[in-house]
């Protein structure tokens, strides 16, 4: 199977994730879309590693996973705290940081 097809898949996943981040209001969904984008990147990394026959891309994929895991911990904690105080998970309700 041609590895380039994986790159098309990665681009498709990234686009879905990006659109989700920009369109959806629910914080959990937005969060999931961010994860989707990260994983699309990972897929692209791994594909490129295969295409170029070296391990750089695979190693980078591990780093991305570690960072994503850390980000999930912090991000979910924020969302939970926000839900407790506002009884809402909509990102549009978190609009106080403006002039």
């Amino acid at each position: 199977m041609n590895p380039v097809n994986y790159l098309y898949l990665a681009a498709l996943l990234f686009t879905i994730g990006g659109a989700g981040v920009m369109i959806r209001r629910n914080a959990i969904i937005v969060f999931m879309c961010v994860e989707l984008m990260l994983n699309a990147c990972n897929l692209a990394f791994v594909t490129f590693a295969r295409l170029h026959d070296n391990l750089d891309g695979q190693i980078f994929a591990f780093f991305t996973m570690v960072v994503a895991a850390a980000e999930v911990v912090v991000g979910l904690a924020i969302i939970v705290t926000f839900f407790r105080s506002r009884h809402s998970a909509s990102v549009d309700d978190a609009s106080l940081m403006k002039l």
Partner: peptide, 14 residues
């Protein structure tokens, strides 16, 4: 531009 909506920030980032 600083309207406080996360999604519009995301759009500008993208």
């Amino acid at each position: 531009l600083q309207n406080g909506y996360v999604r519009s920030y995301a759009v500008s980032m993208f």
